[in-house]
Amino acid sequence: MQIGCSAPTSGPLIEPDSLLRIATEAEELGFDYVTVSDHVMIPTSIASRYPYSDSGEFPSGAAAPRLEQLTTAAFIAAATRKLRIVTSVMVVPHRPAVLTAKILASIDFLSKGRLTLGIGAGWCEEEFIAIGTLPFAERGAVTDEFMAVCKELWTADNPEFNGKYVQFKDVLFPPKPPQGKIPIWVGGESGPALRRTAKYGDAWYPIGTNPQFPMDTLTRFKAGAAKLRGLTEKAGRDPAAVSLAYRVSSNPEAQPKGSVDGERKLFTGDAVDYAGDIKALRDVGVTAFDFGLFGADAEATVGNLRRFRDDVIAKVR
């Protein structure tokens, strides 16, 4: 079982010394990985619905300074030795496919195989327009084709591709990722996300708090995992080849202990509750968990990491 925490990519904690301290302390404290999030820019007016709040509004603080995700991943990789870096998640259509494949392969090469690629198709149409991506309405097809491009470039000796959005041949693409193929964790809880996971994902990587597709109780998560197994078999793959991961955006005591339809709401309450939820999800096959443990500053964040290690991780390992 792997346990990770979030590295800051926005707000005051992105100052180089703060970011460096949080990442290196996470490694020293025994966290297995850190996550880095992805927004290139935040439009000042957003009509698109944010999937992870009841209101559909993007959380406050959108105007905060932000780091680019893959640059941040490379910075963390250079400052650490054992810590894995997970993109959580990379909005695949935001960047050109071949360039993205090269950047990811380079990070994996320079980190000696420590990159995990969490992916999503994206939700904010206004950001797509501002960046100048392919059409927002085609983001699902774009995501799938861009991932096929990455796999071809990462694994083929003489890569070539003839798709709707990307075409190339007679090219070379060394160095390959040391892992052979960078693991792909597919974020999202919707039907398309599950089908994408079943088709080519190495792990399903949901957040429990999507109000449209909640995975916030053990029963709901089990139902989602069962649906994924069926879709994976239908896609002609062994369900055992697809792992289960789970992302939690908050830290212990951020939300009072709650219930849904008489069943415990996952990752609410204190550290004891969190440890119990990790054990319950581990028993149904989840092999990776990560948590947002930010404090007001770097010192407070490191304090949260230490308490989480002592009060939660120590109870589940």
Rank of each mutant, 00 (worst) to 15 (best):
Q2Y: 10
P12K: 02
E15K: 11
D17L: 08
E25G: 01
E27T: 11
Y33R: 02
T35F: 07
V40N: 00
P43C: 12
R49A: 09
G56V: 13
P59F: 05
P59A: 09
G61K: 00
A62L: 03
P65F: 00
R66S: 10
L67D: 03
A73D: 05
R81T: 15
L83K: 06
S88C: 15
V91I: 15
R95H: 10
P96R: 09
D108P: 07
K112Q: 15
T116L: 12
A121F: 05
C124F: 07
C124Y: 03
E127A: 05
I131T: 02
E138F: 02
R139C: 05
V171H: 07
F173K: 03
P175D: 01
K176Q: 08
W185V: 01
E189S: 14
A193H: 08
T197D: 13
T197Q: 12
T197R: 06
T197L: 11
T209Y: 15
L218R: 10
G224W: 15
E233Y: 07
A240I: 06
A241E: 15
A241I: 08
R247N: 14
V248N: 12
S249L: 13
E253F: 13
A254K: 03
P256S: 02
K257S: 04
F267H: 05
A271F: 15
A271Q: 05
V272I: 14
D273Y: 00
A280K: 02
A280Y: 01
L281E: 13
V284Y: 06
G285F: 09
D290K: 00
F291G: 05
G292L: 05
A296D: 13
L305H: 09
R309V: 14
A314N: 08
R317A: 13
